[in-house]
């Protein structure tokens, strides 16, 4: 295999994995903007998306597009319900308390998934065949293109939502200053609900797209959540574009690290780069200076 095709192969791999990290990172960003908390259950939404999809298509034999839409809807509802049950009733909660609540929530989701679907792994058929596409000696699966496509669609939808709709603008207002936002008549509590629903939905979409390539099981969420969290912070917390760029970057660094340096230390290499970036730019790649000061514990 020539060096060029190796490089291209690492790039393909990195971008595919990075797209998932980016979507998880986007989920973190949306909830962070609305509430200031890091949602530890974000990875579980990805897991739930994959698991529900498997259940709908493999057990109930629904066609793929219907299954996709339904799974995203179901997980969106789960995310919203989680907010109503665990976050909404609290008056003036501390950020750290909310974070631990999401952590407890992630344990509940994991436990429920284990009870419902057992401990084994589940696969899904690829959306459009498994024949890899060969480009300059490197290969990419059609499913990887689906993942990248879904990421692009999610980013486009979010960009439209935040820039051109009233509700999206209201959400942005909330993230800048919730008190001022409520003064101009924005229902902040409802925005928080919406943020949970949206990140759950995005997480689910990522999970569904990802399951055919990897396999899904009840405890896969944590690691994906961790990587997404790193992406969200590396990009500059609260900055969606940053999260996407950082997610892709982490994926690519991991892949090149494993390929050219050492597969044993590939995660350490990615985390090392993350540390260095943070030390040079304490508020991430795209984060503003004030962002790092906001939302103390």
């Amino acid at each position: 295999m020539s060096l060029l095709s190796q490089v291209i192969q690492f790039l393909f791999t990195g971008i595919t994995i990075g797209s998932i990290y980016a979507m998880v990172g986007l989920g973190f960003t949306i909830i962070y903007n609305a509430t200031g908390i890091i949602n530890f259950a974000q990875g579980e939404f990805v897991m739930l998306g994959g698991m529900v999809m498997v259940w709908l298509t493999a057990v109930l034999h629904l066609p793929l597009p219907v299954g996709f839409v339904l799974s995203v809807l179901i997980v969106t509802v789960i995310g919203a319900a989680f907010e109503r049950v665990a976050i909404y009733p609290l008056k003036k909660p501390k950020v750290l308390i909310l974070i631990i609540i999401t952590l407890a929530g992630s344990i509940v989701f994991k436990g429920a998934a284990m009870l419902l679907w057992g401990k084994q792994t589940y696969g899904l058929p690829h959306f459009s065949g498994e024949a890899p596409i060969v480009i300059l000696g490197a290969t990419i699966l059609p499913q990887a293109l689906w993942i990248i496509g879904i990421l692009i669609a999610v980013v486009a939808l979010l960009a439209f939502f935040f820039n051109f709709t009233m509700l999206g603008k209201a959400m942005r207002a909330c993230s800048i200053n919730p008190v001022a936002a409520s003064l101009v008549g924005i229902n902040v509590k409802r925005i928080v609900l919406l943020s949970f629903a949206m990140s759950a939905g995005i997480g689910a979409a990522a999970g569904i797209a990802f399951t055919p390539i990897v396999l899904m099981e009840f405890d896969r969420g944590a690691l994906l959540g961790l990587k997404g969290f790193c992406a969200a912070v590396l990009g500059g917390l609260g900055n969606g574009t940053g999260a996407v760029i950082a997610g892709l970057l982490i994926g690519v660094i991991e892949s090149f690290g494993a390929g050219f340096i050492s597969s044993e230390y590939k995660d350490a290499i990615a985390l090392g780069v993350l540390l260095i970036v943070l030390l040079v730019r304490p508020s991430g790649i795209m984060g503003g200076r004030e962002a790092s000061k906001l939302k103390e514990f």
Partner: peptide, 13 residues
């Protein structure tokens, strides 16, 4: 030198 969530991620790393 980092604060809040940035410190959390740095220590996590």
């Amino acid at each position: 030198r980092l604060k809040g969530h940035y410190l959390a991620v740095a220590t996590l790393a």
